[in-house]
Amino acid sequence: MDATIDIWKVTKTTLFYLLVTAIVVIAIFPFYYAILTSFKSGTDLFRINYWPTSFSLANYQQVFTQGAFPRNLLNSVFVASVTVILALFLAVTASFALSRVRFRGRGILLMTILAVSMFPQIAVLAGLFEVIRFLGIYNTPWALIFSYTIFTLPFTVWVLTTFMRDLPVEIEEAAIVDGASPWVIITRVFMPLMWPALVTTGLLAFIAAWNEFLFALTFTVSNQTRTVPVAIALLSGGSQYEIPWGIIMAASVVVTVPLVVLVLIFQRKIVSGLTAGGVKG
């Protein structure tokens, strides 16, 4: 009797771990294979291997020496950083007002912000193009910083509002009694309490800006002003058979590794930030 139960238990555990293994392998294999490919060069590239067989840095060398890729990388870092700083700056004060002060129309305003974050980017593309031409920032990083606000700002406002709502009221009242103005409350009482939330939202907004493609494709046209997603998307050879896969994979690994490292370091915070933005409301 006991033996049969044990067998059933062992089978169940085995099946469970098979499932777990399958999930892990499927999740990481494409990235693993991209890394594997990025270290191959010449004809090695077209030999299919499941394990590392050769090691060459030629692709990486080419990525960093030929073409505008280093410049693209700088553009991406600049655009994403400035976008995040701007969004956080605007969002911190706004979410204080939205979470802490009772005023008429607050519900509608929050609803509007949520709706904007659901906007299809294509719906504003034509109008944004006009504004960007009007401002004279077409084909500059500022065009992207400007347009990325459309998704980073609602997102940061939303997450920070849900977070600030949970800060105890009495701490704020103690600060009011101490003579703190709303600005002092935000900068000297709430901000220090919120920095984990700020880091999380900032990181998520950074990733979103780093990965953005449609605006970057539309509002920049020269190699010097493009960001990495566009650069990688447009890397190609003369024909289908000349696509420089090794270089593409090397560039992909370069832009992805920092993200993966950041995500793994902050994984707990990111998970809570994602769910705060998505489910909690």
């Binding site: 999930i23 990481i28 998307a233 993966v260």
Partner: peptide
């Protein structure tokens, strides 16, 4: 949990090319 965050973290363009 760490492993499944990887596909999420990879930029869409990169995953398309991969």
């Amino acid at each position: 949990r760490a492993a499944i965050l990887i596909p999420w973290a990879i930029p869409t363009i990169v995953s398309a090319r991969m």
